[in-house]
Design a protein around this nucleic acid. Structure first.
Lengths: 316, 316
DNA sequence: CTGAAAGCGCTAACAT
DNA sequence: ATGTTAGCGCTTTCAG
């Protein structure tokens, strides 16, 4: 039995002959190792827990897709849960997952409730925070600077000659990524002469973006550009402009964030921020795999970067 | 130890007094049950395996979202994997999952390779097939008739007076849902007098849909309507019409399939088929929970239905 | 109703 | 290089 275990786990201390016999017997019997028993005995499960705000949203599931690919290649599997943007639900899911003894855990974002942070700190397993950056990760963060991306994007609008720029964001405390985008906007606005800025909050949906455009056009006619915190809102806004015959970018320039596939296809195509989300997930998984193989020399802050994609919605 | 276990599992054979003492001790010690050990001893893991073609696509992740919600409410968790539309990869993932002894497994679609089908049949756990219907499920199918939906959608075009209708589908053997949509189209075409039908194949992407429109407009000028097998292709086609100044639905009527959120927002809005995918996932999970609680009187074919949503892209 | 004991199917330490 | 043994932390019988 010990020898079979050694063969299965690729130990070097098995003669080629024995190894072959064991392999043959396994094939003949159709033996499938019970990974539950292995998990208990070896004190590792090969399961990775991942918590994202919502599974049905492309931005987050693409990260999961990347993680799943890499983990699968290493014989590990992914347990997944959705917090619905609620700290309370997130904590529940984390507790439920930890009881299953995952080897590592991935959470979205870098600002968590005290309860969540301390639970993760005490978990004793690698914790990867994703999709944003922080100088103070629980353990390791793999992401990009939403703040910097927002600054660069807004600067592009300034370079195009715009000074009256509205930022459209989600509900208050919706999530740290969106908050950082707003903060980047505010910071740049404060450093730039002759800059007129305002902020609108709306639902993070096509209809929310459309509503933001309606409000803006109705109340102020001096706005030159709208900087939407997500592509979903931006596309909604763009489509509302289409319906109202508002020329984009002539009358109103528009930017998004995320580079959803629709951003490149829509008319006019949408200027936005691109992040390799599948790559982010892969990177996170690679770090997990490395760590579990005992490599403790890994960086704790991993910046996967972003790219400003200028398209027709800002280009005269 | 036995008594603690009984308290934890809600056995009736515990006095109120003892139950309270145990509960207090658990709280005081911060004891968290090890679900790996429980899984081994109880011969059930509380893990459900789900395999979808791709995690980053809304259609499938919405199903997962629905399942995750219901399962979480019952103390169960989801393991997830992506097949990338490859039978080979799917079988690998199924094997890897089964070694973890999930209590049930969900797979997308109803037509599988022989190897996959027999592996699932021998697995000894509930198997749910989703997102289509069949009279011959491996165990239980929860879905809707892609065939019927396609028939009804095409009939709507006929009712609007169109007779020259092109169906745009994906690559050959891409998946059974899309194949059934094509089959429904063919069947209706064959029963209808004066119907001129043709089929185009393209990539299932915005660009693929745009390319289909370019090809169609270049080669035949008699086409009155294009019936795209997915909203993604249909939206791509619609946007290409926008760019070319082709009047939709005046010159060309367009339909999609899936009711992605963009379908309602785009100009003109898109006629499509709506399926409650989150509800489908919830239903699948409810059946799993029921079955695991010993209910064997459940139907093996569950039709969650669909709805034709007519919007501007077919309405003069 | 509660305590004691066996065992789930493995891994890993310890012999040899 | 291989066989043997003691757990991993629970659940579930079996006694009482």
């Amino acid at each position: 039995m010990g020898t079979v275990s050694r063969v299965l786990n690729g130990s070097v201390n098995v003669s080629a002959d024995t190894r072959q016999k064991v392999t043959a017997a396994i094939a003949e019997l159709g033996y499938v190792p019970n990974l539950v028993a292995r998990s208990l005995a070896a004190n590792r499960t090969g399961l990775i827990a991942a918590i994202i705000p919502a599974i049905g949203y492309t931005q987050h599931s693409e990260v999961i897709q990347g993680m799943a690919d890499v983990l699968h290649a290493h014989g590990m599997n992914l347990m997944i849960g959705a917090s619905g943007y609620s700290d309370e639900v997130e904590l529940q899911i984390i507790d439920a997952f930890l009881a299953r003894r995952p080897d590592a855990i991935y959470v979205t974002g870098v600002r968590h409730s005290e309860a969540i942070r301390s639970t993760l700190e005490r978990s004793g397993i690698p914790v990867i925070e994703g999709s944003n950056l922080t100088n103070n990760p629980i353990d390791t963060v793999v992401g990009y600077s939403n703040f910097d991306a927002s600054v660069e994007l807004t600067r592009l609008l300034i370079d195009r000659g715009h000074r009256r720029i509205w930022h459209v964001t989600g509900a208050k405390d919706f999530n740290d990524r969106i908050d950082d985008r707003l903060a980047g906007f505010h910071w740049l606005a404060s450093t730039c002469n002759g800059f007129e800025a305002d902020v609108i909050r709306c639902e993070n949906s096509f209809e929310g973006g459309a509503e933001a455009v309606r409000q803006t056009l109705a109340s102020v006619d001096k706005v030159e550009a709208m900087c939407f915190a997500t592509d979903v809102m931006a596309v909604g806004g763009l489509l509302e402009c289409q319906r109202r015959g508002v020329d984009v970018p002539g009358r109103l320039a528009i930017t998004g964030f995320d580079d959803l596939t629709i951003a490149a296809s829509i008319n006019p195509s949408l200027t936005t921020v691109k992040v390799d989300r599948v790559g982010l997930g892969r990177k996170a998984a690679e770090i997990i795999v490395d760590r579990l193989q005992g490599n403790n020399q890994l960086p704790h802050i991993v910046d996967v970067g972003f790219e400003i994609i200028e398209r027709q919605s800002t280009r005269q």
